[in-house]
Design a binder for these strands. Structure first.
Lengths: 110, 110
DNA sequence: GCCGAATACCTAATTCTCTTATGTATTATT
DNA sequence: AATAATACATAAGAGAATTAGGTATTCGGC
């Protein structure tokens, strides 16, 4: 059914980077919701995956966090670390190439 | 560089199934070589990954093996288990959908 | 006013796949 | 004769996601 889960491994890092680059800044919960909506419930990011990923990317210096209180709830926003922008672009490009190669290797058209 | 490695996780199963479905029967080493050629050295399958994968798929009943001696070397050919064909098609279809969703989510065009 | 759903964060134990490193054996190339 | 290529295999370790749990606030229905 929603077994897209098993394909996610390895790509989550780059999904997050790509969404942040496109949307400026986002918080964890928002990333999950947006992904869910944009893929028609097909790619479901779990909180147990997204938060460790965000922490990892921040530790690696690729993104930067800032807390904001909105409607009494604390949101932790993340944005691309501009000094790592090149590295980020490069990683996104690699994923793009990978999916391209994969689709041609497997003659996928969908 | 060839960091496509980190994207492979989870998709290897399905890559193997798709190649076997398309090519009738193949052996492990051949799958590695073909993948390397078809992706211009971008997707490199290692033997430590491919052989356990083939064993797993056979254990799960999705593929069937048969040994052949060619030029003094033993090849272990694998082919899709026809009674599992539907399951195999379904898995390939899922990967196809996943990469499609991924590319649209990330606005990938390459 | 209460209660469940939604929002929003977090972490730990376990599972699973891949990497890295080895090992064996035969044939082709230089 | 030595090295590369072919062809299989497995084991230890790393790393990421799943599963499952926890906290806390706000919104919506009744």
């Amino acid at each position: 059914m929603d077994s897209n889960k098993k394909f996610l491994n390895g790509t989550l890092n780059t999904i997050v980077l790509a969404l942040l680059r496109e949307n400026g800044k986002m918080y964890g919960y928002e990333i999950c919701q947006l992904t869910k909506e944009k893929t028609d419930n097909k790619i479901l990011l779990t909180e147990g995956a997204i938060y460790p990923t965000l922490h990892r990317l921040e530790k690696d210096g690729l993104i930067i966090s800032s807390k904001e209180k909105v409607n009494g709830r604390t949101r932790k926003y993340y944005a691309i670390n501009q000094s790592s922008l090149q590295e980020v672009e490069s990683q996104i490009d690699l994923l793009s190439q990978f999916t391209g190669h994969l689709r041609s290797l497997l003659n996928l058209t969908t």
